[in-house]
């Protein structure tokens, strides 16, 4: 167990800082408070990328987003991850932000950021201002009456699609969590973003061998071309043999409290032709049960169309544009 955890002293008023790009922002807005910050950057074990024996790769928690995106292994074997990372934030922020921190970033809900409005995520029990407020950027899947905030990461959408595993270290020892189980849906405890318990630390993220480097695409739709959060984003990874889909992965960002995957849709695509019609059926399956609000109902249709487009883009990954803008 790293010394950093010991330094936290089991006191919830103490916090860890790595890249600092989110926590320093939150501290300055007085959204997060900390009596003590423990800088974990000196943990050298967490700052690397290396091949695993099983053919997969481990992303050190303290490796920066930029170094990860531009790492030759990632660019070559996991281009979907590279593209998703490069669609997030800005070059400067990617140079600072770490992989572990990316998983732990907090929502960008307007009301979460305004300490003078009710927000169950920031101030449990105070109510949700977004549900009857301006909710253009909010969730359509997996939300609750307590919280309709979305998780803002791009990188995690790709990690979800790639079936990553989160390595966790802590006072009780090491453990792993499949990516799908790492982030939570809000339920009636939206103040808890993920299943990390206090005192635990992400040491790295493992990605299995299969990188879908032949057919992949990341698409991000937003209110300006770059340096803004997704209204809807899609990571698609396809394994195609003889014009037949052998395996499909589709994850959505910007629509839920966590990267959103629906296994039924991926199963449906198995052994099917990679056609617009089949992608459209998969999109319908993924968006089944989606619920919009006054200002974000458009996201349901937009997400369906984005899925279809991105699956088609994945057939020709070289058509992808900087900033994960739509192409073709």
């Amino acid at each position: 167990m790293p010394d950093a955890i010991t330094e936290l002293n089991g006191d919830i008023r103490n916090k860890l800082v790595a890249g600092g790009t989110n926590i320093n922002d939150l501290l300055k807005y007085f959204i997060t408070k900390a009596d003590k910050l423990v800088d974990i950057n000196p943990i050298k074990d967490f700052n690397s990328i290396f091949r695993l024996e099983n053919g997969g790769v481990r992303l050190g928690a303290l490796h920066t987003n930029a170094d990860t995106a531009y790492d030759p292994i990632i660019e070559e074997c996991y281009p979907l991850l590279s593209k998703a990372i490069l669609a997030g934030a800005s070059a400067q922020i990617r140079n600072m932000a770490t992989n572990g921190g990316n998983l732990l970033q907090r929502t960008r809900c307007y009301y979460f950021y305004d300490i003078n409005t009710p927000c169950n995520k920031r101030d449990p029990g105070s109510g949700c201002s977004a549900i009857n407020g301006y909710n253009r950027i909010h969730a359509i899947l997996g939300q609750s009456e307590s919280c309709i905030a979305v998780f803002p990461s791009d990188m995690c959408v790709a990690l979800a699609a790639l079936d990553a595993v989160v390595n966790i270290d802590g006072p009780e020892g090491e453990r792993t969590l499949p990516f799908a189980d790492f982030h939570r849906i809000p339920g009636d405890t939206p103040h808890i973003d993920n299943n990390l318990t206090y005192g635990e630390i992400i040491s790295g993220i493992d990605i299995p061998k299969k990188g879908f480097e032949k057919n992949y695409s990341y698409l991000k739709l937003r209110d300006r071309s770059s340096y803004s959060f997704a209204l809807v984003s899609v990571a698609t990874a396809l394994d195609i043999e003889d014009s037949t889909i052998k395996e499909a992965r589709i994850a959505l960002g910007g629509v839920a409290h966590k990267p959103w995957r629906v296994i039924e849709a991926e199963d449906f695509l198995k052994e099917k032709q990679p056609s617009r019609e089949n992608f459209a059926i998969a999109a319908d399956i993924i968006l089944e049960g989606a619920k919009g609000y006054k200002h974000n109902s458009f996201k349901i249709e937009l997400a369906k169309r984005a899925i279809i487009r991105n699956c088609i883009m994945a057939l020709n990954p070289e058509t992808q544009r900087p900033g994960a803008k739509p192409s073709l």
Partner: peptide, 19 residues
């Protein structure tokens, strides 16, 4: 409902970027 601006920052008050 609150009589206030809810995006008083440059992350959510969008002005064009170079792209």
């Amino acid at each position: 409902r609150f009589g206030k601006y809810i995006n008083p920052n440059l992350a959510e008050y969008h002005i064009p970027v170079h792209a």
